[in-house]
Simulated scan of single mutants.
Amino acid sequence: MGLRNISLAATALVFAHAGAAFADSGSFGDWAVVCDNGRTCTAMGFGDLGEMGSSALLLLTRDAEAQAPPRVSLITAGTAATTLALSVDGVTPPGLAALPATPMADDDERRITELTPDQTRALLAVLANGRTLTLVEGRNPAAAISLRGSSAALRFVDDRQKRAGTVSALVARGARPASETPAPPAIPRVTAAPAVAQTRLPAMPTSALQGRLTDCDDDIAELGFAPEVARLGQGRLFWGIVCSRGAYNVIYRLFLTDDRGGDVRALELSYPSGETTSELMNISFEPATQTLSNFDKGRGLGDCGAITRWVWTGEAFTLQHQVLMPECQGVKPDQWPVSYRSR
């Protein structure tokens, strides 16, 4: 089994344990797609995987509205401003011979190139039927992105956005007008409850909580993990207590209690798939925003998996946001596509 397949298997195991799912996503050859709950979709093509991560990442993003154009960004390694030329199987499409690649504001190890609408159309005209997209700096090839699976990935986007058969489809074009593309689903609104003081919190789980942890790892108490505890409101505490761990994931059991740690109830959270869980990996809670976050790592590098947020509304923890990377390809989380969003 190759590295990529091993990584995908590891990611699948993470999601199976945590209760998460791959939202509306798919993997196609060397490409992947993630679509969110508003039918915005991002197709991704990956460069060669080296010690420092992927040498390049192509992000093709399209919103769900009928007239929304596709947008293409390229993330490449490097620090100095330069230009890139793009070629597909040795041929440079019109307008793609000298593209600016500028350092990213928040990362001095990467550059970003954003294509104009005309440049995007020129690339899409040859992308789906090509074999390799080559990025060239001067006369030197800088990175190569395999196009194996790109056609299937773009057809997946057309299908999920209900554009197949319309003139605005990326690949699955037809004669129907773009106006026949249905409007996207409404994005839910999530409002956090007011922040409350975090004084006089208990330091250790009560006996009532301990009684709910009898099936945890035998040695977990010896490892000295402190519980996550926060006051959500009057008479309501949140608890996250470590129950088990793996090589790079720490798994917490989640509970709600009264101020004294009694009236223990398991906290059930919903993922974008609709699945529920009372366990999360690698959690943190931000009292100022009443936000619970977790990072389901697909492997130790943290370059695949999901990062999800829930907000305490005063009645329940409600799903707020998720980014997802189903492929372990050295991509940093700040470039992962959104798989769930709220307002």
Rank of each mutant, 00 (worst) to 15 (best):
residue 249 N to A: 02
residue 277 T to H: 01
residue 315 E to G: 15
residue 37 N to V: 06
residue 84 L to F: 13
residue 19 G to A: 02
residue 337 P to V: 04
residue 269 L to N: 00
residue 105 A to Q: 08
residue 291 T to K: 13
residue 38 G to E: 07
residue 22 F to E: 04
residue 99 L to M: 07
residue 324 L to Y: 12
residue 261 G to Q: 05
residue 286 E to D: 15
residue 205 P to I: 14
residue 236 R to V: 15
residue 143 A to T: 09
residue 86 L to E: 12
residue 138 G to D: 06
residue 92 T to Y: 07
residue 278 S to A: 12
residue 21 A to N: 11
residue 130 G to E: 06
residue 18 A to M: 05
residue 179 S to D: 09
residue 49 L to R: 11
residue 186 A to D: 08
residue 281 M to T: 03
residue 20 A to D: 10
residue 201 L to W: 06
residue 140 N to H: 12
residue 172 A to F: 02
residue 68 A to D: 02
residue 190 V to S: 07
residue 34 V to Y: 10
residue 36 D to Q: 03
residue 287 P to A: 07
residue 44 M to W: 07
residue 253 R to A: 15
residue 299 R to D: 06
residue 320 Q to M: 09
residue 78 G to I: 11
residue 147 L to Y: 08
residue 71 R to I: 02
residue 221 A to C: 07
residue 281 M to Y: 04
residue 186 A to Q: 09
residue 20 A to Q: 01
residue 85 A to C: 04
residue 189 R to W: 10
residue 74 L to H: 09
residue 263 D to L: 10
residue 105 A to M: 08
residue 8 L to W: 05
residue 90 G to K: 02
residue 263 D to T: 03
residue 78 G to M: 09
residue 92 T to E: 05
residue 150 S to A: 13
residue 249 N to H: 05
residue 146 S to P: 10
residue 184 P to D: 08
